[in-house]
Computed example of a mutant assay.
Amino acid sequence: MSNYCEPLLAALKDCILHSDCVMKKGRLPSECIKNHTDELPEECRSLRLATFECKRGMLDMRKRFRGNSASATAVKIKQESASAPTTELPRTTSSV
Rank of each mutant, 00 (worst) to 15 (best):
K34C: 01
E80C: 11
S2L: 06
R64W: 02
C5R: 09
G67T: 10
P90N: 07
L17H: 10
T73S: 13
M61T: 14
S19P: 05
C32Y: 08
R48T: 11
F65N: 11
T87H: 11
I16Q: 07
V75T: 12
S30V: 07
G26L: 02
C54Q: 13
D60P: 00
C32H: 06
L49M: 11
L40C: 03
R48C: 01
P41Y: 07
R56I: 08
A10M: 06
R64I: 08
V96I: 05
M1E: 11
L12A: 04
L40H: 03
L47M: 06
V75A: 14
H18W: 06
E31I: 12
P41G: 08
S71V: 15
K24D: 07
C44L: 04
I77C: 03
E39P: 02
S95I: 08
A70H: 05
S2R: 08
L40Q: 02
N3L: 15
S94H: 00
D14F: 03
L9P: 00
A10G: 02
L59T: 00
V22I: 15
A82V: 10
M61L: 14
L28N: 13
R45D: 00
K24H: 01
K63F: 14
E42C: 01
L8E: 01
L89S: 08
R66M: 11
T93L: 11
S69V: 07
H36F: 15
A74S: 14
R64M: 10
G26T: 05
K13G: 06
A11K: 04
